[in-house]
Design a protein around this nucleic acid. Structure first.
Length: 346
DNA sequence: CCGATTTGACCGAG
DNA sequence: CTCGGTCAAATCGG
């Protein structure tokens, strides 16, 4: 890449990143002060615009990096990757690239991975595990020393959109009600963020409740001879939008309030809303855990160590606003750190 | 018939 | 050699 062009793009990226960071700081301040939701929405819109700009700028400057990619058409949408691609020498880039998306390796032991533990609530495993993304199971393996087999999933858009995100789901040995979910890579597709265009959130919740009733009453277990995980396919926790390296899509408001998936293979109840509370522990394998509650309101940060029982009543409307603010606070707190990291990296 | 899942074989890092 | 991860043919089910 021509140096002058590269410098220009880099300075543009830096400026836009700084602007995004500033917006996030402002949003955090609003959240701290419990400002009106309209203010937060306005700020989040500006943040989204900045992110789109970042992606665009980064996209302009990745021609060199693209040549290094194993798949020429695979342009990671992750701005972290794109900015890294632009600046890195071939050697550095390889390091960064393999750290972020080790597409080719069959062995993924050294991949950065995010592990969460999802506990089954009264809404069933489906509600607890739904992350809005669409997964396809490609393998199942008995793991030495584990009571339960591990299931391997990959994004359904692997071929169509070159999305190489994968995950592993395994029932916990200690707690049969808990599932360990390990995510590898980040989604370059945007499937999981497809939102209903004409259906309101409340309508979605109503439909899910209906679907849940159908599932539990009208159509009692039809696949008893199948492993439970089979039923879980494509019903992941909406938490996954928080996982992996921070991407623009992970910051979209949709993902904050829970992913929504409209793929035809999923039943109506695959949306996060309306599911009964379940508890998840979000663990960055290389970092400290964040505890989250998957509730009707989406993700609710919790204090360490407290699991909510199945009998917990869903949050009422009076506390929904606070929960939403907490979600935003958590999300953008992480985003802020990522912005700082990006600036530092550059 | 077609798409999704199952499952045994294969690959490769440790 | 072991075992986790992936592939792909066989099978299932709508």
């Amino acid at each position: 890449m021509e140096n002058s062009t590269g410098c220009k793009h880099q300075s543009q990226l830096l400026a836009e990143l700084a602007r995004t960071q500033e917006l996030v700081v402002q949003l955090e301040a609003h959240l701290d002060q419990h400002s009106p939701i309209e203010s937060c929405k306005s700020l989040s819109s500006n943040i989204l615009l900045s992110i789109e700009k970042l992606i665009h700028i980064a996209g302009l400057s990745t021609s060199e990096a693209k040549q290094l990619l194993p798949f020429p058409n695979t342009v990671p949408q992750d701005p972290l990757l794109q900015s890294a691609n632009k600046n890195a020498s071939a050697a550095n880039f390889n390091s960064v690239f393999h750290r972020n998306c080790n597409y080719l390796s069959k062995k993924r032991k050294t991949l950065p991975k995010k592990k969460i533990q999802v506990r089954v609530g009264s809404g069933g495993v489906a509600a607890a595990l739904d992350d809005g993304y669409s997964w396809r199971k490609y393998g199942n393996k008995n793991i030495l020393g584990s009571k339960h087999s591990r299931s391997y999933y990959r994004c359904r858009d692997r071929n169509t959109k070159r999305c190489f995100a994968t995950k592993q789901v395994q029932r916990s040995d200690e707690d049969p009600q808990a599932f360990d979910v390990i995510y590898h890579g980040t989604h370059t597709c945007r499937r999981g963020l497809q939102m209903p265009t004409t259906t309101s959130v409340s309508e979605q919740a109503r439909r899910q409740n209906q679907a849940n009733r159908r599932l539990h009453n009208d159509h009692p277990v039809q696949q008893q001879n199948k492993d439970l995980l089979m039923d879980l396919d494509a019903h992941e926790s909406c938490i996954s939008s928080q996982l992996g390296s921070v991407t623009a899509e992970a910051m979209l408001p949709e993902s904050i309030h829970g992913g929504y998936s409209s793929q035809p293979s999923l039943p109506d109840n695959c949306c996060c809303f309306g599911g009964s509370p379940a508890i998840s522990e979000l663990i960055d394998v290389s970092g400290s855990p964040t505890q989250l509650c998957v509730s009707e309101a989406g993700l609710e940060p919790l204090t360490s160590g407290s699991f909510v029982s199945d009998s917990l009543t869903p949050p009422n409307s009076a506390v929904d606003a606070d929960i939403t603010l907490l979600e935003l606070d958590t999300q953008f707190g992480e985003f802020l750190v990522s912005c700082s990291n990006l600036l530092y990296t550059m």
